[in-house]
Design a protein around this nucleic acid. Structure first.
Lengths: 201, 201, 201, 201
DNA sequence: CAATAAACGAGACGGTACGTCAGGTCTTCTG
DNA sequence: CAGAAGACCTGACGTACCGTCTCGTTTATTG
């Protein structure tokens, strides 16, 4: 996370940093972002409040960092394979994405984080740089390869294409419009690929 | 808004109600949802705090009601024409939607409201019932008519179809992925209709 | 109780008046004067708040009226006999006074009422006119008779004398300085009479 | 003042403490105890409300502390001389007491404090320990010395004796029964000493 | 190997807002 | 038209946290 002020980072206490992120993650999971306070994080982490204010500019930043840390501990970023079968490759991304969104544990945290990110331009930039843009770019790259191979219309707008892949699922998730399962992911991939002019897989 | 407790609504002071909603709308526009407080709403509206707590369960509910009231004062719900030209009809909805999302005034309020709605199941239900579901349904109805007319594949999934129309634009808006203009709306409509198997307009 | 404004008293609802005084007395006994509220009195009495405000100027006035009503229902004012035995006659007043002050039930109410009376000149006047002055006057009258009979020094200051009889007991009660029993009352009477120059009984 | 909870007193800000007590004293003098609020004390003292709640359990306790502080700044406790002339020594205490009670400035504060103390057992204990008991004890000690010297009856009840000295004056003060001047104090001393069997001074 | 400087835990501080309670006024409906 | 019911504006309550600011106490280079 970008520091607001700049204490010497070499002197930073790694144990405190980890304890803070862990406490933040636990508290969000237990009670939601709305009930989260700096004081509770500090108390749970066994840390002075100032230690949090020293290294993070806002509560959202702490939670975001905690989320990032968890993401990296987990697999970190889905990578999109290129097996030659475009539909299969896209399903390999969208199916686990659907699984994640459907997980009740992720749901609360994800919504809380989304709400924060949407209303804080700094966090939004951070989110895009660290998570979203890389994901969109690997997807775009895969589609670009397919376009080069003639499997996608030559005039396809790849920015729009990635939005067509991720946007509908995101929309369904946030608004609770329907189930998020593999069948849905598959149907979505199939439909989008039809729009892009490729032959269905 | 659904009442948490249920004072006799016939005794409600209509002037106070209106003043509260107006004050809430102004304050959100001026300083954002995060800086909004019940006390400020009450002060600006010339109303006791208790009068707010009596009729609304949360700050989010007030703002949401204010938003709804404004929506209804404005045109209240897009209606989707059926001119026979499906692409033109969809553009007639998506172009003004893009305009709205691109409006900086709406942007702040919309993001704030979205954040609230996403994290409060009661608000989300309210939002779906009053705004989202009707919009999706008219869209679905228009597509259904087109399908009956043979302009859309017989096996088209209309739930997915509406998500394909609104989801990408919403995704682009929330994450700031690119411009939201008529050209984008048009391209989106064209691409989605290609996926649905209709002849492009 | 003196009325602050003056609605026509002939139209007053006697049942409401009684219910209010009863409710006030009960609530003071249950929870103390500090926890007493007009709203609770109204609720318990099954009466609108306005009915209380119409007839009493303050919460203290209601409680005071309730206290007076109770006093009058009970014996209403001690009368001081004149048996010829001054010491015995004074003991006949001071012993039951000590009993009353020592009663835990009276203690709470009495302290609450005292606190109100001491800080509200209107209530103090009311208290003196209705309760205190009559008591002091009968005591003074009894001493005057004794003085005429030569049992009390001719130059005795009767105002001071009554203060010597009631003041020490009141002082002991308010500050919790010691037991309030018949032995104490007797000793007090004996000592004061010695000061007044009468022969001890 | 006895603390309700016990934050580390060494970390206490002495300036805040003094500002609070000063503000409390001023506000009571200006508008009376009834109109006193914690919020006004905090505002006048330039202090957060929590700083008051942290160190005092109630509004009464603050005012009481303010009163104590003022007492200690002033002479702090009358001491009772032993000149050998008992009557003169007692007049040396009761005359300034009468002056104090007759002072309109003290009257309001004193009544307010009395009302609080009478209804709060904790405050009463505090009051007795810090102010009342020491006063009564020096008085008792002086009378004991006189009794040893044969100037007071051997069987005199000293507890009752001090009540006879202070009780009547207190009673007169609280109920507004008559003037509180040196002549009254002198008469009181004279009368009480007659009761105690000593020769009048 | 001190000494010295920074991060640290702890928590008091001046504040803001919370959600609740009660005050006293006002309005509406009922007997 | 007095009275019940209760909504209303006001203002204070006591609590929770905010972000800042000392306090000693580690901790970890650096002279």
């Amino acid at each position: 996370m970008a520091r607001h002020t700049a204490p010497d980072p070499t002197r930073r206490n790694e144990q405190s940093r980890a304890a803070i992120l862990t406490a933040a993650a636990e508290l969000v999971a237990e009670a939601g972002f709305g009930k989260l306070t700096i004081e509770k994080i500090a108390a749970r982490a066994g840390v002075g409040k100032q230690t949090i204010y020293r290294w993070w500019p806002s509560k959202g930043a702490v939670v975001f960092d905690a989320f990032l840390a968890a993401s990296q501990d987990a697999g970190g970023g889905y990578d999109l394979p290129d097996t030659g079968d475009l539909a299969a490759d896209l399903r390999a991304v969208l199916r686990p994405t659907a699984d994640e969104l459907a997980d009740p544990g992720f749901d609360r945290t994800g919504r809380a984080l989304t709400a924060e990110v949407l209303n804080d331009p700094d966090l939004l930039r951070e989110y895009r740089e660290r998570l979203l843009d890389p994901l969109l770019e690997v997807t775009r790259a895969r589609l670009r390869a397919a376009r080069t191979a003639g499997l996608v219309r030559a005039d396809a707008d790849l920015d729009l294409a990635v939005e067509l892949l991720y946007g509908p699922m995101y929309y369904r998730w946030l608004h609770g419009l329907g189930p998020l399962d593999h069948a849905y992911a598959d149907r979505l991939v199939e439909t989008v690929l039809r729009a892009l002019g490729a032959s269905t897989g």
